[in-house]
Design a binder for these strands. Structure first.
Length: 403
RNA sequence: GGAGGGUUCGCAUAGUGGUCUAGUGCGCUCGCUUGGAAAGCGAGUUUGCCGCAAGGCAUCACAGGUUCGAAUCCUGUACCCUCCGCCA
């Protein structure tokens, strides 16, 4: 949610930002509805004051008269404010000024490459070929039991998963992240508050009988955990490291990455999430990115960092960086990490504030998130980068003690 | 799944139609007092919106309804607790 006051005072910047993100929303209509809404609000407020006075004086006749007028105005206001609310909920977060303008993912910018791409004295295999001979992944039987875009992890892949999780938690706890395993279900208002329901709703699994949603990332459950709360300033930044299964319908990706476990409906992920003061949000975003790079460097995996352009930011993010790992078996980079600065977009919807000590006022906290490890893709990355001539995998040193 | 009880300003509570602009205790903040502290005394202490301000409006879980007037009465929903059933 954006601040309606900001929109009123910065109409041009709002329209520019919305357009840069590739959204088409009528800002004039929003301002028009807002004006009508405020006018009605004032009239209702004044009438309420009169009504109170009449009630104190036991003026039944006048009270009745006001009541009729009030109910008319109130039903009028209800229609207007519902329309306004609907439009406000469709507005995406605005990009930060420093984010490069671009229409889609083809215009993202490579900030740097890091690590050394492995050189093999044998033809590199892709992870599916390796997994088949090792017995690590069974996507075929998954098709039988659940359908496409699922996979069974077996044997070494399972040991690798738990090693990655434990390594990530050990490192993040040292940095002050609170470890957390959240519920994977969320109520509609929580999912809506995190900004995942008013846009591409089809991406989210919904359990109709219980009216609950399955999370696509623990970010959603961690943010919603603190809805309607007020932090004290010294609690911030408040950092969580969450582990959960993640569920995605992959509604818009028919035919894309259909083989293997690169793009599946269910995967496990360790996720970082921060609540921060507005003035610290950019710094916090860089910190989350540095954590991601630290994790990748520890595993000695080759990767590159992308600055995401405005058109690829998505709904919530004001700025975003992705990390793509090099996959020698496929001779290409693939996304493994993403970190977003969502500013006050989610906290406005979820009513998450902190008490500013200087002013004594309650201000919206800023929220940020970033991937620590998306396990499935990390398994793929390790398999392809650490493969040996005999088809076995040489586990990264830092993981040895966990396996 | 069944039966019952509950949700009030940080916490604990009072409040069964107008005197509630919600009382009291605890906690917290400030002041007086003191060499300093405690105690005592006094003042303050929900949140949000509108307004330069004075002030106004809303807010007693949430949403409706009854009434000139609702924390209070009615309906629905959510959540919590107790008991029964089921259960890793």
């Amino acid at each position: 949610m954006l601040d309606i006051k900001y929109i009123r005072e910065n109409k041009n910047d709002t329209e520019k930002g919305v357009k840069a993100k590739g959204f088409d929303i009528d800002v004039d209509l929003i301002l028009n509805l807002d004006e009508q809404n405020r006018k009605l609000e004032k009239e209702i407020e004044d009438l309420n004051a009169e009504r109170k006075k009449a009630a104190d004086k036991k003026d039944v006749e006048k009270g009745k008269e006001i009541k009729v007028k009030l109910s008319e105005l109130e039903s009028e206001k209800k229609i207007i404010s519902e329309k306004l609310d609907l439009l406000m909920r469709k507005l995406p977060n605005l990009p930060l000024a420093e984010v490069p303008i671009g229409k889609d993912e083809t215009e993202n910018i490579v900030l740097r490459e890091a690590g050394n791409k492995p050189k093999f004295d044998f033809p590199a295999k892709d992870y599916m070929a390796l997994a088949e001979s090792l017995g690590w992944i069974d996507a075929e039987r998954a098709g039988k039991a659940v359908g496409s875009r699922f996979g069974y992890l077996l044997n070494g892949a399972v040991r690798l998963e738990f090693a990655l999780v434990r390594f990530a938690f050990d490192m993040l706890e040292k940095e002050g992240f609170i470890p957390i395993v959240p519920p994977v279900f969320l109520k509609p208002e929580a999912m809506r508050g995190m900004g995942y329901l008013d846009y591409n709703e089809d991406e989210v699994y919904h359990l109709e009988k219980d009216d609950l949603y399955l999370i696509g990332t623990s970010e959603q459950a961690i943010g919603a955990m603190r809805m309607n709360e007020i932090f004290s300033e010294k609690q911030l930044p408040l950092r969580y490291a969450g582990f959960s299964s993640c569920f995605r319908r992959e509604a818009g990706s028919y035919g894309k990455d259909t083989k293997g476990i690169l793009r599946v409906h269910q995967f496990d992920k360790v996720e970082m999430f921060s609540f921060a003061r507005p003035e610290d949000a950019k710094k916090e975003h860089e910190f989350l990115l540095s954590m991601e790079e630290k994790l990748m460097k520890a595993l000695e995996l080759p990767y590159r960092v992308l600055q995401i352009c405005t058109g690829d930011l998505g709904v919530q993010a004001a700025n975003k960086y992705d990390i793509e790992v090099w996959l020698p078996g496929q001779n290409q980079y693939r996304e493994t990490h993403s970190t977003s600065n969502d500013t006050d977009f989610q906290s406005r919807r979820l009513n998450i504030k902190y008490k500013n000590e200087k002013t004594g006022k309650n201000m919206y906290a800023h929220t940020l998130n970033g991937t620590a490890f998306a396990i499935g893709r990390m398994i793929i990355a390790i398999m392809e980068n650490c493969q040996q001539k005999d088809g076995t995998i040489k586990i990264p040193k830092v993981l040895e003690k966990y396996m």
